[in-house]
């Protein structure tokens, strides 16, 4: 076991962060609100870097990495507030050729579609599989989104679309995982912004970060972020172990969760399924709450400035809010985990 980032993984994070700072500086990101959240040129650069083909095997033209790495990349994208249907586009890479792809769960009645103006296609998940709906088929009435970087529109009824996959196993978990990764990044970005302000803003003749009320708030932001990050990375490793693609499966390649050994390459049995669900739902709760609390604390540390449109604090918070209600409420995730507590082999 070595649950620290490898040198390659560190280089991957640094590379993505450099790309974000070079191409998605905060002014550019704010500007994207004017063009539906996606600029095709910039989006193409993300695609060329391999952001959306991370988990596509090399022989199919992808980068051939695992979910753990996808989590690391999405964490950096969240930290930089990069907008757009990132989750849908990555997950779509294996089934469709479109370049800007949304993802939504089919529900009865009207749907709220994110980034409707810029989509090529929308993937719809339901009990029978995954369906591709051409963006041209959507009749959208724009709504005012809570998050300027997540435009949304109402669609009275989602078209049936054309089936692109029969199984949906793993889709929701993967979407939840990637959203959580973005949120860990948001929690980090908000904490960094708050700490920087606490160092520079002076009141009573000293930096406000010298006051414990502020310093301790920042420490709590960091703790939440670290705990959420640990749970996210763990979930990424569990996903790689249970549903690949990921590390090559070799004979004698064992996994060990909570006191039970499973062998890789086996069909996903009950135990692995439980591990997966528990890890992903756990990361979901911790990441969503870390992003929410850190967003609020970031506003608070900025005082009056924090309540302005000008300061970026609200962007972290609003993005965190936009990402939480997808594929199950936090309450639902908590209930899913509760079902597995008694079954924990540790007990």
């Amino acid at each position: 076991m070595d649950f620290e980032l490898s040198d390659d993984q560190v280089a991957l994070c640094d590379g993505i962060w450099d790309l974000c700072q070079g191409r998605f500086d905060i002014d550019t990101v704010r500007g994207l609100a004017e063009c539906g959240g996606v600029d095709r040129q910039l989006w193409g650069e993300l695609a060329d870097t391999g952001v959306f083909s991370l988990v596509v095997p090399e022989e199919d033209g992808g980068v051939g990495l695992g979910w753990a790495e996808a989590g690391l990349v999405f964490e950096q994208l969240g930290r930089a507030l990069v907008p757009g249907p990132l989750v849908g586009t990555l997950l779509a890479a294996e089934v469709v050729d479109d370049s800007v792809v949304g993802l939504i769960e089919r529900t009865d009645g009207p749907a709220l579609v994110e980034y409707p103006d810029v989509l090529d296609a929308l993937l719809v998940l339901d009990g029978d599989g995954v369906w591709r709906v051409d963006a041209a088929e959507l009749s959208v009435e724009m709504a005012q989104s809570v998050d300027p970087l997540t435009p949304v529109g109402r669609v009275a009824k989602l078209p049936q679309g054309e089936q692109v996959s029969e199984g949906t196993y793993g889709w929701a978990n993967r979407a939840v995982f990637l959203s959580s990764a973005l949120q860990v990044g948001l929690a980090m970005g908000a904490r960094e912004l708050a700490v920087a302000y606490a160092q520079e803003r002076q009141q009573f003749g000293k930096p406000i970060g010298q006051f414990q009320a502020v310093k301790h708030k920042c420490a709590d932001m960091y703790s939440r972020e670290e705990v959420a990050r640990a749970s996210l990375y763990y979930a990424g490793c569990v996903m790689d172990a249970t549903m690949g693609p990921g590390l090559p499966a070799e004979p004698g390649d064992y996994l060990y969760f909570h006191g039970c050994t499973i062998e890789r390459g086996d069909a996903l049995g009950d135990h692995e399924h439980r591990e997966l669900v528990r890890a992903v739902s756990g990361a979901r709760i911790l990441a969503a709450e870390a992003a929410d609390h850190n967003g609020k604390d970031c506003v608070q540390v900025h005082g009056g400035m924090g309540f302005t449109w000008e300061i970026n604090a609200h962007l972290y918070l609003k993005r965190a809010w936009a990402l939480t209600p997808c594929f199950g409420s936090l309450d639902r995730h908590a209930e899913r985990i509760a079902e597995m507590v008694g079954a924990n082999p540790l007990g």
Binding site: F3, E226, V227, A228, A230, S231, Y233, Y234, R278, A279, S281, G282, A283, I285, L286, D331, H333, A334, E335, R336, I337, A338, E339, M340, V341, N344
Partner: peptide, 17 residues
Amino acid sequence: RREIGRLQAEYDALWAL
């Protein structure tokens, strides 16, 4: 039930940490 689930999520995360 939800609080039990949340506690488990947080302990799992601390175990990962």
